[in-house]
Write a protein that binds this DNA or RNA. Sequence first.
DNA 1: TTGAAAGCGCTAACAA
DNA 2: TTGTTAGCGCTTTCAA
Lengths: 342, 342
Amino acid sequence: MSGKITLKKIAQHLGVAVSTVSKALKNSPEISMETRQRILNYVEKVNYHPNALAISLQRQRTMTIGIIVPELVHHFFSRVISGAENHASRCGYKLLISLSNDEWDKERQVTEMLANGYVDGILISVAKQTFEKGNFDHFSNLIQHKFPLVFFDRAPSDLPVDKIIINDVEGGYRATKHLIDKGAKRIAILTTPPHISVGADRERGYLKALNEYSLEVNAHLIVHVDERQPVREQIAILFEQNIAPDAIFAVNEKYAALALKLALQNNLKVPDDLMIIGFTDGFISKSTTPSLSTMAQHGFEMGEKAMEILLEKIEDKSLFDTQKIVFIPTNLVERESTKLKS
Amino acid sequence: MSGKITLKKIAQHLGVAVSTVSKALKNSPEISMETRQRILNYVEKVNYHPNALAISLQRQRTMTIGIIVPELVHHFFSRVISGAENHASRCGYKLLISLSNDEWDKERQVTEMLANGYVDGILISVAKQTFEKGNFDHFSNLIQHKFPLVFFDRAPSDLPVDKIIINDVEGGYRATKHLIDKGAKRIAILTTPPHISVGADRERGYLKALNEYSLEVNAHLIVHVDERQPVREQIAILFEQNIAPDAIFAVNEKYAALALKLALQNNLKVPDDLMIIGFTDGFISKSTTPSLSTMAQHGFEMGEKAMEILLEKIEDKSLFDTQKIVFIPTNLVERESTKLKS
DNA sequence: TTGAAAGCGCTAACAA
DNA sequence: TTGTTAGCGCTTTCAA
């Protein structure tokens, strides 16, 4: 802002003190009706807006919250952000969104920048690379300095922190159980490498369900997709084996959609020859034919809840040494890709 | 940050002046090697990070850019953001993302907040409601104050501003021409209401192509989707008419996917009975079976270019009174939903 | 080589 | 009712 209007300039122009202008702008009764009007009129005319930076610096309070997500393209993260934004603005806070691109270094940088005055608190879902690297120093630092921090969805497991997470084990269990209930016997899982907690947990739920219903666990039916390699080929393996699955549980929407596409290309009928269930209820799951059954994650609620807990911490410092862990339940959305075997 | 470390505290602890610490941190040769080391050691130990707010206030420069998008779920916007972020960080700038939720008031608020000290410049794609309302005052204000502002994708047409836009007329023309080339005769269009410029422009391109190839324009084949009503029903009308289209051009991915789904439900063969082409090359277009042909928009490049122009403006104030309009070309991605009629 | 002081734009306690 | 002053955390000029 080059020709920026400041309190000082206004005061000079009007021949009053800076503090007089400041008070008049707050409609303080200290200032006479007359001067107040004069000031207000002028301020209106020149379209003055106070400098947020200066106010924040002075108040030691920015009334804004930072949210850091690994990436934006996920429908789920978009929903979390909307939920967080919704609760924040209801409480008079603004939201600043930043990206880590799933990279450790980027995450560290952004976290520090936001924490250094920009925001009053941070909501974060941890980058994949950070899990791989196992270095959570940028978080421990903040915690040590009592900076308000709340994790959602992807949280470090060893740190004493507040977190709002999906009950992924239960979600994986219920998705698998759904397939079993529909009559599936050879259920494959498309999951992430074990260091990604959400994938690992969903896989745990899958194993639990198989066990409970005494279905054999077959290593050939468990695919740990490595995103650094072509995903399509890794999924395709499922269709090239002797023992073909009669159902697939994919731990995200992308893998589910890709599995469906490959199944159709292999002339399999879905759900008759092969059932598929995904995770995350985004637009893709609704768009395919047949549409995909899935475990909905309620990202919006997660965002709202995470923000709620963060704001509580910010406004009540006594909460500092307590940590909350909140589980957001998943729920089954039954569509065309799963149905009872006849 | 409660137990926040400041230059002052460091200076007190070490028994030196604030300015000495400040200089030492910048490795200024003014300060003797010895004190410099002493300070650096201590600073390292207590993990000091300067307050970004204070620096920005002092420098009158934040080294951060704000980007305001109507919504996040769109693949296209996510790509633009990534592109912008990429160029920004290469130039030493940070990116702050904010949402307008396609609402006028929210957009106004966020724009003002960012402009009031938070960022050095703004990249924005205008909210739908702002076009409906026709009130662009929050932008004119900034322009009047010479605040660096660059529009992308959705820009006000009457203001003298910098903008990076898709050549939507050409994109609509080429999509339609592609259908014509493949032998389509009765081409329908799924578009937005006329006040959304991108939809209107793509429709213009559609009409131009029909005209050029002497195909009849049929009002029944032109659907202006109103998102405030159920979208599905509005698209379904196309399949209930006497005169059925043999091809559909949808101005976005969502409408294209929905049209495909409805077509398949109506037992139409795609592309044999009906061809479909969309706009935006996102994950959905690849996921459907058959996969969707589409006009790719190159959001990443758009974001990069927009950021480039904005940073130029920021760093060279003499550019202030020139406005650039940059067109980003679209390109045809041919997939399974269109093919030559036999 | 180090320190004092002014100032970025604002608020708020205190004085006049 | 209005003005003066100090201070938020930092940088930078000028003086010591």
